[in-house]
Design a protein around this nucleic acid. Sequence first.
RNA 1: GUCCGCGUAGCUCAGUGGAUAGAGCAGUAGCCUUCUAAGCUAUUGGUCGCAAGUUCGAUUCUUGCCGCGGACACCA
Length: 566
Amino acid sequence: MDYTIYKIKQEIRTAVMKALAQDIDEKNIEITTPPEKEMGDFAVPCFYFSKLTRLSPNMIAKELKSKIRPSGFIKSVNNVGPYLNFVVNAKNFGQKVLKEVGKKGEKYGSSKPDKEKIMIEYSGPNTHKEFHIGHVRNVALGASLVNLYRFGGKYVIPVNYIGDIGSHVAKCLWCLEKFHKDEELPENKGKYLGAIYSEAVNKIEGNEEFKKEAEEVQRKLESGDKHFSALWKKTRKWSIDELGEIYKTLGVKFDHVFYESEVEKPGKKLVEELRDKGLAVKSEGATIINLEKYNLKNLLLLKSDGSSLYSTKDLALAKLKFEKYKIDKSFMVVDNRQSFYFQQVFKTLEIMGFDKPMTHISYEFLTLKEGVMSSRAGNVIPFEDFLEQVIDLAKEETKKRHEDWEEKKIYEVCKKIAISAIKFNMLKVGNNVIIVFDAQEAISFDGYTGPYLQYTISRINSILRKEEAKDNIDFGKLDNLLEKELMIKMSEFPEVIKSSISDNQLSALTKYLFDLARLFSNYYQNVPILASEAEIKKARLLLISSVRQVLVNGLDLLGIESLEEM
RNA sequence: GUCCGCGUAGCUCAGUGGAUAGAGCAGUAGCCUUCUAAGCUAUUGGUCGCAAGUUCGAUUCUUGCCGCGGACACCA
């Protein structure tokens, strides 16, 4: 799709090419933004050209300036030192951009669909454990990447991979049986299980007898003991139901859910095959694959008692994904601590002859000031509790503003405000930044936050409720500097999408949306819209309606539902 | 020990091989009879961890060092 931003850059490149005395690769013409808006809207540094000619970059800039005539989107050209600065023709450019936003609507910024089919695995929670705020970072990132790739034209299959078996399950069930049998069940049974798991971890810590008992439960589970299998089935559902509620709250959907329990057997079979082929070997009773020649050490594939590991199952899962879903690429959103492990798994699959494009999208984990969140440390912050806390905070302000709103409406709005705060907070930093979770900061609604963007949209809505935007306007009326800035900013949206996709993170997008919103807030403060003269008002209404569209599209990609009013 | 990531304003973080390094929060001073003040404006605040190298130019690239975090065989 040929967005205006690409067209104007092409126009600048072409003009520079023509003015340049010699042939160069167009790609070497770099286009940047000047540090001060008074200098111009786009800039071409001339250092590269001076390497080819013997002239100084300043001389070249001067010469190019004299050769380039304004036309099309280019209103004027100036040389400042080694830079060639371009001022855009706001009327032509703005008209193109606003029409584009209006025509494309919610698709503004997207790319034409291509044939590529990709699977994105994210979330990957365990049953029988608490879903805490750390898990939210993964969901926020994964869900946004799904949106982003779809927007970028890919056919995306979002999937989840739930850990429904393993020692954590055994510990939880052991504790449930031993200390909570015949207890009355609370409404949120999944959360109840999570609390029991934490209790189990604490009880088992340093207690050999309990440890043995829990291990016994695990053996029973693995050998298909009737009682425990039934208990597993029942409790597993509690967790899965609760996860379903959480995903609903977070507004995410998976096309398919894989469970560890379904890939365990196929995984063991794959490891057997590897052993038959002599690729995997026994070592100290366990089964390993030697990856030393790839500088990846050894990967353990089966425990010495023959039971499976994460790796056992991941091999089968990888094959299942490609074979059943006919995907072209597979992405897994998993935290950074597993980077080395994934390298090992990918190499192992390659050795197995299963060389497919798989990417581990890694991000740093979330921790607390006092250290990593863990059941053992007893400092887990459950997502649902935290969310209620943020909602309560939002309520204080909302009630003040809307005394006439019913309790239910207040709750619905505040829930959206809270979720936008939480998600935005996690996406605004780069993937490789460790988030030291600070409730105070995560709860903040001021400045660079999700609620600020919601607020901006609400203000635009408030105006547009009073008078709708129409699209037959005189673009010449949008002649002030802030208006031009807003239009240029909006034109950049497709570029931001592209770069976000290319580095698999959302921080550039959050930054962009904040910048756009701030630009609008400034405009809102200083330029009257409804009170302006009829023709000007019409133009301004269209402008702000376009700003809203871009903000809404951006938030949508972040998995944040825009509010009508707040 | 080996490998990976990080080290930028008091705090939390953006940023780029090039024009005077930017935001938010916190601080200070202003702005609500006017479209939602969850806002806007102005302002204080920096040896971009340290050192060397590549370059016309390095906060950005390379190497070394220091500091922090993580991974590295029976957890997931």
